[in-house]
Amino acid sequence: MTELEQEMILVARQGQAQGYRYLMNRYGRQVQLIVAQFVSDMRDVEELTQDVFVRAFEHLPDFDPLRATFGTWISRIAYNAALNHLRSHDYAPLPLDEEQYAPPDAVLWAQDDEEQANEAERLSLLDKAINRLRPEERTLLHLRYYEKRSLGEIAEVMEVATGPLANRLQRIRQKLSKMIKLTIS
């Protein structure tokens, strides 16, 4: 966390709009993309993103910079808010911390099947397969491959242990591979 960010957090804690605006400009897009993994309607995404910041600013006194960065902290708020939004629509959350699954295979996608499709088709198939994942799984992929977070940081955001999270990530890659294979075949 930079010094400017620390200063702006202090300014926001004092209730000054300048601090709030800085944090919204800095993390607005990040929060929006996390929420977008759960909600497809862009109006709902915008509304939820606003609610996330309102909640974050109301609980700003609870933020401890020694425990997590502000980005991780607000990402967790966004993740929980989006999940609760789905729960209000009778969505059953995916248990990410289950360790009952067998360790994933080392080899994942079969190149020989994918080579039968051209590049554009492969990309399209992969996009469609990601769309069919559960929201939690998409969020995991987003945090890992778009925000390039470590498993430890992702575990803080999603409040899951690191070990099961790594297994879950590999299972997701296997699932994508199967979906692509099924689509091709």
Binding site: A36, L123, L126, D127, I130, L141, Y145, Y146, R173
Partner: peptide
């Protein structure tokens, strides 16, 4: 491939 896919999303 996954990074590119998430960026497209």
């Amino acid at each position: 491939a996954l990074q590119a896919a998430m960026q497209r999303r």
